[in-house]
Design a protein around this nucleic acid. Structure first.
Lengths: 98, 98
DNA sequence: TTATCATATAAACATATACTTATATTTTGT
DNA sequence: ACAAAATATAAGTATATGTTTATATGATAA
């Protein structure tokens, strides 16, 4: 088990805006400006997060003219996020200490 | 989808020492000192990470005399970590940019 | 109650991270 | 070559985080 690598990927998933971006580009490639508009985030912030996601190899990048398109590199990431969401929900529902 | 909660859980998984602790207590409850010995980490550091994991509801805590036992609260976390490790491995293997 | 063991907390530090504002780079159309 | 659009980068700031060292808390045994 490569726990170091798993921890690194988890860190990429630890910011809600990055998760929103990943969801945004999960099924089709989108340009930076399209993501900016859809998520209502500033362009530098989106570029910053895309850079991190690229560094984590979580996105594929393709230039088409002046546009740069990003797409989710591995669909399993979505199921990871969904499992995390499910587990979080269950943990909150069943917690014993309030 | 509760992306905020998923991001919060992911943050709990973003440190390699926390992952090691979760693995250490995945199948049986262990005392803090047992974890300290097994992972060769300082006691305050282990306590600190356990506190974070407890805050994320990822561990169950039980006191028995002077010992405090921690155990993994949800087994699905292990499969999340394993998937992350697998995906990371695949991404590194198949990356196009070196 | 006192000593000891197990664990938690506090303080301090260095580093990392999310974000904004401003500017640079790259591409295309004229 | 110039202007405009799309994206990236830089600088700056505030906050968070991982770690160590030192100390406090809590439980048990004598």
């Amino acid at each position: 088990m490569e726990l170091q690598q798993a921890a690194f990927l988890a860190k990429s998933l630890s910011d809600v805006n990055r998760l929103r971006i990943l969801y945004c580009i999960r099924s089709e490639q989108k340009s930076v400006s399209a993501i900016v508009e859809e998520l209502r985030l500033s362009q530098p912030l989106v570029s910053h997060h895309l850079k991190e996601l690229k560094h984590a190899l979580l996105v594929d990048v393709e230039r088409q003219g002046p546009f740069i398109y990003y797409e989710l590199a591995d669909q399993r990431i979505i199921s990871v996020i969904e499992t995390l969401s499910l587990v979080a929900n269950d943990l909150i529902t069943n917690r014993r200490t309030f």
